[in-house]
Computed example of a mutant assay.
Amino acid sequence: MGTDANIPAFVINLDRDIERWQDISSALTRLGVPYERIPAINAKNRMTLIRRVIRRDFHFAPADRPMKAGEIGCYLSHVAALKRIVRKNLPMAIIFEDDAAFDERFPQFYKHDLARFLTKSDIVKFEGIHYAHTSKSGVSLIKGEAAQLVVPLKPALGSAAYAVTRKGAIGLIKALSVTDRPLDHKLVYYDRHGIDFAETLPFLVSQAAYESSIELRNLDAPPLQPAERLRRGVASVGRGAKRIAYVARLLVKRRLLGAKSPSAA
């Protein structure tokens, strides 16, 4: 049975990416998803202004490298989309990057599952990129008609498609106040931002085969020194412990106590 929720979408799109905008706007029209364009911030052309307004080093400490201009622009564009959701006082909304491509099950997910999922989690991510270190499954919160909602211990990266409640948008704006790593890293680190986070299984959106708007990252970085490898290993164990504790608390709150999510109140 469908829901009455007509969840709006905000699409991040650079002015120069006309083909992308035509493709995704046509797709969303066919899918019956109301949408609004968010002009993406072209940091390559505006870095002087950005550095004047945001007085900090844009340094991705875990990788020991400066953030790319494209990463900074993407990050700030997502913040702009989240602020639009809060200003419009929307109870829930979707954020898409303009390279989103839709699975054939997406219409069923949108009509039947997404609003229900957003009563269980303030961030619902339904696109992701898996690596060797990410989880391809997770603790199930609810089973929908097109997908399950799960909490992975090691979330997938990528930020091409996710939905938030208003509470989630407010929390993310606060969590994203310091631009110190790519947006997708901040989005999925629920042990740090503390916002209820979950993914769909399977993902209902993927990234289309466009040339990336974000510069390629340095794949020829020097090997880590032993001390740095040890530090990262210890940090990884700490993150894992925090995530296990988070999932345990979530299960108690959602299942054993039958408590309503704050986002559904």
Rank of each mutant, 00 (worst) to 15 (best):
F126V: 04
S26K: 06
R217H: 11
F102P: 01
P62V: 01
L114T: 05
P152E: 02
R51Q: 15
P107L: 08
R20A: 05
A264Y: 00
A146Q: 03
A147R: 11
A80C: 08
I18A: 12
E145N: 12
G73I: 06
G194M: 00
I129Y: 08
A63T: 05
T48P: 02
E127H: 10
V139M: 12
S236Y: 04
D4G: 15
G194W: 03
R254Q: 12
P182L: 05
T165Q: 02
K68N: 13
A5R: 09
A146N: 03
L49F: 11
A9H: 12
S121N: 10
S121I: 12
R20I: 06
G70A: 04
K83D: 14
D113N: 01
A40R: 10
A265W: 12
V252Y: 09
L187G: 01
R65G: 00
I72N: 05
N42Q: 04
S236A: 15
F10K: 05
V139Q: 13
A175W: 07
L114G: 05
V234T: 11
V234Q: 03
N45G: 04
I24F: 10
G171E: 09
F60H: 09
A9P: 00
L251S: 01
G128T: 01
R243K: 00
S261D: 12
A27Q: 07
R52Q: 15
A27W: 03
H185I: 15
V139I: 14
R239D: 14
E211H: 11
L157A: 15
D23L: 10
Q22I: 06
R51K: 15
K186P: 01
G32M: 07
Q22S: 11
L172Q: 02
G168V: 00
T179P: 01
R87G: 12
G144A: 10
S263K: 01
K120C: 14
F197R: 00
K120E: 14
G240V: 00
V11D: 06
G240S: 08
A198Y: 13
P8M: 00
L149P: 04
S25C: 08
A100H: 06
L250N: 08
R20N: 06
H78A: 06
K167V: 02
I7G: 07
L224Q: 13
D98N: 07
T119W: 10
M1T: 14
A248K: 05
P152Y: 03
A146R: 05
C74V: 03
T48E: 14
D113G: 10
S206Q: 08
D57C: 10
L256C: 11
A27Y: 08
V151K: 09
Y35P: 02
Y75N: 05
E211N: 05
R231G: 00
G240C: 11
I170D: 09
L201S: 14
L230R: 13
Q148M: 14
P222C: 09
R116D: 14
D180E: 09
F106V: 03
